[in-house]
């Protein structure tokens, strides 16, 4: 079971105020607020879109927490996501990020994977060192929270192999991922240790291109697509709820498939 830390409304207030400002700016950019009163804007004004700290939003956040506990209970450590033949791979594969494709970051020179938190060995990892670990390949369906899906092929180091190798505390609650494109996400430990959760180095049998997450990305077919973070920079094992780029804005944290 996943136990999220008890967070009071007071703790969240500055964060929510920041998110609300960001959300309002986003909506203003879309010209949304100038369109007059509608069911949608009524939801915004009365605080039903997770960006305010109204009673309705508090109830929605509480329900998301409840859903996360149900999802953690439904999660099986051994049940595998369906795998497909190579002929089923979606071509062309769709690019997706929180920014458009022309803003894709190239790999920083002297890139190293940083390790932090509850691990025995925090020495950074080069790509060559990662390539020396046992590799696993998978052809699985990537399902986006928006509803679309596509089948892709990835290979790399199983995360459970890597976490054991660095001497991670496998009873810690969370594994957090930080990316050099400004993205971040986090997993519950049970999902992180699932056999199909990999630190991918290859996409379609070739080293990852920048748009597919070079040099190293997470690939986790038991969760929605936004959990498969690209362009990894650092991994942290922690007991403090880490949130994530989308999770902090209201995407359901567990987001299991």
């Amino acid at each position: 079971m996943i136990r999220r830390p008890a967070v009071t409304a007071g703790d969240l207030a500055p964060e929510l105020a920041r998110l609300r400002r960001r959300e309002l700016a986003r909506l203003r950019r879309r010209g949304f607020l100038t369109r007059g009163l509608s069911l949608g804007s009524l939801a915004l004004l009365t605080g039903c879109d997770l960006s305010t700290h109204s009673g309705v939003d508090a109830a929605l956040w509480a329900m998301l927490g409840f859903n996360d506990r149900v999802q953690a209970a439904l999660f099986s450590r051994t049940r595998l996501a369906e795998t497909y033949p190579a002929s089923a791979i979606t071509k062309p594969f769709r690019f997706n990020a929180y920014y458009p494709e022309w803003q894709v970051r190239t790999v920083p020179t002297h890139w190293r994977l940083e390790i932090a938190g509850r691990v025995a060995d925090t020495a950074p990892w080069t790509l060559d060192k990662l390539l020396a670990l046992p590799q696993e390949a998978q052809i699985t369906r990537h399902i986006c929270i928006e509803g679309w899906s596509q089948i892709g092929q990835w290979s790399g180091v199983p995360l459970h192999t890597f976490l054991r190798r660095v001497g991670a505390d496998l009873r810690a609650r969370y594994v957090a991922f930080r990316c050099f494109d400004g993205y971040a996400t986090s997993l519950d430990m049970a999902s992180a240790l699932h056999p199909q959760t990999i630190l991918a180095v290859d996409f379609e049998q070739a080293p990852l291109a920048p748009e597919w997450g070079a040099p190293l990305r997470l690939r986790i077919p038991t969760k929605l697509g936004f959990k498969s973070a690209k362009n990894l920079q650092a991994i942290e094992v922690t007991n403090t709820y880490p949130g994530g780029y989308w999770e902090n804005q209201g995407y359901d944290w567990f987001s299991g498939s």
């Binding site: 909506l27 369109r35 509608s38 069911l39 949608g40 804007s41 939801a43 915004l44 039903c48 879109d49 997770l50 960006s51 929605l60 929270i145 928006e146 989308w246 804005q249 209201g250 995407y251 359901d252």
Partner: peptide, 10 residues
């Protein structure tokens, strides 16, 4: 205006 939640997460 016909939808509930304001955006995808909502």
């Amino acid at each position: 205006w016909m939808t509930l939640g304001g955006w995808l997460a909502g």
